[in-house]
Simulated scan of single mutants.
Amino acid sequence: MFYIIGLLENLMLLFVVNKEQILHKPMYLLLCMLALTEITSSTSVVPRALCIFWFNLKTITVHGCLTQSFFLPMFTVMHSTILMTMAFDRYVAICNPLRYATILTNARIVKLGLLGLIKSVLFILPLPLLLTRLPFCANRIIPHTHCDPITVAKISCGDITVNSIYGLVILFLVTGLDLMFIALSYGLIIKAILRMSSNEAHHKALNTCTAHICVMLTYYTPGLFYCLTQRFVQDVALHGHVIFADLYLLIPPMLNPIIYGVKTKELREKLCKYTCRW
């Protein structure tokens, strides 16, 4: 149900932004990129997981597993890159409002999205390649509903030090840099807000950031918790890891369109226009 609701919400969001000319702005273009990333990341895992639970189809080919171990982390990194770009978008909107239309054009946002995709592919491509070099002995049962790279590496009978270190490099270098730029953007935003004289201006500026902050919390908090506990905490029960990982792929795609739909007046009005008609 979470998967279907999230899928319908994100498809509805894409449909409304595409139909409404007034929503053809950088902020909504980034929101569409986020929706596409969430659709593809959950779809790369959930249907396959449901086949395990509903039809007891527990086998997966080596190529299928390697494909899944590439696309899921790639979409995760892409998701983080989009959130960083959205933070920059909010920084420009609040700190340089008069230059917003010239700094962030739709064409520039598309280029930033393509650069983010290239970055994701380049950083994640070594993960499945590192898995192919590992020997797998008698145990070929992956204790998960999908081929998470570190989970697959752990069932190997070889040395997985390189796999583990590279996973941490991605976590701290790629995601860490994104978080650093997000923190820098919000530091400058807070500085600009404190300079504003009226309370109404304070409220308006903060309100434009609320949705983005909520979306970041729903993504980074469980994501970092899952990645770190997978590597450093041994006391968490296996089913706890599995349930948490699956909910991490289901809840943000379901909540994010609701958060933006509630907090963004312009989008809320256009969504109501179509949903009320139906």
Results as ranks from 00 to 15, higher is better:
217 L>F: 10
98 L>E: 14
191 K>M: 08
107 A>C: 00
111 K>T: 04
37 T>W: 04
109 I>Y: 01
268 R>G: 09
107 A>D: 05
83 L>W: 06
241 H>Y: 13
83 L>N: 13
30 L>Y: 14
108 R>L: 11
25 K>V: 03
85 T>I: 09
254 M>R: 02
256 N>M: 09
55 F>H: 07
254 M>W: 07
93 A>Q: 13
56 N>Y: 06
124 I>S: 12
74 M>P: 04
31 L>V: 03
147 C>R: 04
159 D>F: 08
130 L>S: 04
1 M>F: 00
86 M>A: 13
241 H>V: 01
188 L>Y: 14
92 V>F: 08
226 Y>R: 05
164 S>F: 07
90 R>F: 01
273 K>Y: 12
182 I>S: 06
274 Y>F: 14
268 R>L: 04
134 L>E: 04
180 M>F: 13
274 Y>I: 09
31 L>C: 07
92 V>Y: 07
210 T>C: 04
73 P>F: 08
270 K>P: 08
78 M>E: 15
232 F>R: 06
175 T>H: 15
151 T>C: 04
206 L>M: 13
260 Y>R: 06
176 G>C: 02
123 F>I: 03
187 G>L: 11
92 V>T: 08
30 L>W: 13
171 L>A: 08
132 T>H: 05
57 L>H: 12
224 L>Q: 12
187 G>Y: 12
267 L>P: 14
188 L>Q: 15
199 N>V: 01
277 R>S: 15
229 T>I: 12
166 Y>I: 05
112 L>W: 11
69 S>T: 05
112 L>V: 05
181 F>R: 11
265 K>W: 09
154 K>I: 00
96 N>H: 06
29 L>M: 14
108 R>N: 13
16 V>R: 01
165 I>W: 10
141 I>G: 00
34 L>S: 12
38 E>D: 14
140 R>I: 09
161 T>W: 11
123 F>Y: 04
33 M>W: 09
216 M>G: 09
95 C>Q: 02
191 K>G: 05
223 G>E: 15
183 A>C: 07
181 F>I: 03
33 M>G: 12
133 R>M: 10
219 Y>E: 11
230 Q>I: 09
143 P>Q: 03
126 P>K: 07
51 C>T: 06
140 R>E: 06
78 M>H: 13
221 T>C: 13
181 F>C: 11
10 N>Q: 07
185 S>N: 10
115 L>N: 14
265 K>R: 14
145 T>M: 04
75 F>N: 15
240 G>Y: 00
38 E>W: 07
186 Y>Q: 05
163 N>A: 05
231 R>C: 10
235 D>H: 14
13 L>I: 01
170 I>F: 01
153 A>T: 06
218 T>M: 09
230 Q>D: 10
219 Y>P: 03
267 L>F: 14
137 C>L: 00
126 P>I: 01
144 H>A: 07
249 L>N: 10
158 G>M: 02
12 M>N: 10
63 H>P: 00
4 I>L: 11
97 P>L: 07
101 A>T: 13
272 C>R: 15
174 V>C: 12
274 Y>C: 05
52 I>N: 01
93 A>S: 14
194 L>R: 03
213 I>P: 02
233 V>H: 02
202 H>F: 07
181 F>H: 12
63 H>C: 04
125 L>G: 02
92 V>H: 06
71 F>H: 14
253 P>I: 06
62 V>S: 04
202 H>M: 03
238 L>K: 02
176 G>M: 03
41 S>P: 00
189 I>W: 08
47 P>W: 00
8 L>V: 11
17 V>D: 05
